[in-house]
Amino acid sequence: MKTHKMNWINGIIICLFALSNLAFMNGKPADQNLESTFKRIVLKYKSNPAAAKALWNEIVSNYSGKDRHYHNMEHLQNFYNQLKKCKDLTTDDDLLIIAMVYHDVIYNSVDHKDEERSADMAVERLKSIGYPEEQIAKCKALILATKTHALSTDTDTNYFNDADMTILGLDRNTYETYVKNVRLEYGDTPQFSAGRKKVLQYFLGMERIFKTDFFYKIYEKSARENIAAEISTLP
């Protein structure tokens, strides 16, 4: 009986070990959360867990500001989830995640240069960990591309912008919560409704809101319906 019990325990240990190996195939955990994914990327270039943690804490602090009602960690998580969906269609998953983490790290700045300031911060932090210069330049370009979400000749940029825009095509309740939170961020801005309407009309005027076939098929129709519905509520 004792031998049988030991064999049973050893069998469980072996199964758990096998599952663990499956989870870490190719050196990557099978289901990482955003924090662990970000830290893993940082540690590739700077083998200092304390430095990776400090960078992550800075990001969380920025996205958790009291005035962040939409452009917060929840937005970042949705963006991350969307990028995971198209991971096999992009060429540099790590770069897209780094750019995503920093794309709104500075928000609602006095001079309204959020993307430029976010890109500058990303460049500074990436240099500090020894990230390749070529990739730093691409990261900066990705962040700046979120200013207009225009069609790009770079496929990764199109997937990046589309993933950022998916909130427009989610279910109506989620979209309405997004609208409410954006208004909370900018509610005291003069002529907010007029400016918001102009932006929404700009999106509807695009031939395609989503530039990649992948996201277009999933979100284009519902995004246009959501936007049209919101416009109908604006003066």
Rank of each mutant, 00 (worst) to 15 (best):
K2H: 13
K5Q: 14
N7P: 01
N7Y: 15
L16D: 00
L16F: 06
A23E: 06
A23T: 08
G27A: 07
A30H: 08
D31E: 11
D31M: 10
Q32P: 05
N33H: 11
K39L: 03
K44Y: 08
Y45R: 07
N48K: 12
A50H: 09
A52H: 05
A52D: 01
K53V: 06
K53R: 11
K53N: 14
A54S: 15
E58Y: 14
N62T: 06
D67S: 15
Y70C: 04
E74M: 10
E74S: 14
H75S: 04
L76N: 09
N78C: 07
C86R: 05
K87C: 05
T91L: 06
T91E: 13
D92S: 11
V101K: 09
Y102S: 04
Y102I: 03
V110R: 12
H112Q: 13
E115F: 01
S118N: 03
D120L: 10
M121R: 13
M121W: 10
V123K: 14
E124Q: 15
E124P: 02
K127P: 03
G130P: 06
A137C: 06
K138Y: 11
A141D: 13
L142E: 04
L144E: 13
A145N: 13
T146Y: 05
T148Y: 08
L151W: 08
S152Y: 08
T157H: 07
F160M: 04
D162N: 09
A163Q: 11
T166H: 09
I167R: 01
T174H: 03
Y175G: 07
T177V: 10
T177Q: 13
K180E: 11
N181S: 09
N181V: 07
Y186S: 06
Y186V: 04
G187Q: 06
D188M: 10
D188L: 13
Q191V: 07
F192E: 09
V199L: 09
L200Y: 14
L204G: 02
G205N: 12
M206I: 00
R208Q: 03
R208N: 06
K211R: 12
T212R: 02
D213T: 00
F214L: 00
Y216E: 00
Y216R: 01
E220P: 02
K221Q: 03
K221D: 02
A223F: 00
E225V: 12
N226Q: 01
I227Q: 01
A229D: 12
I231G: 00
S232T: 05
L234M: 14
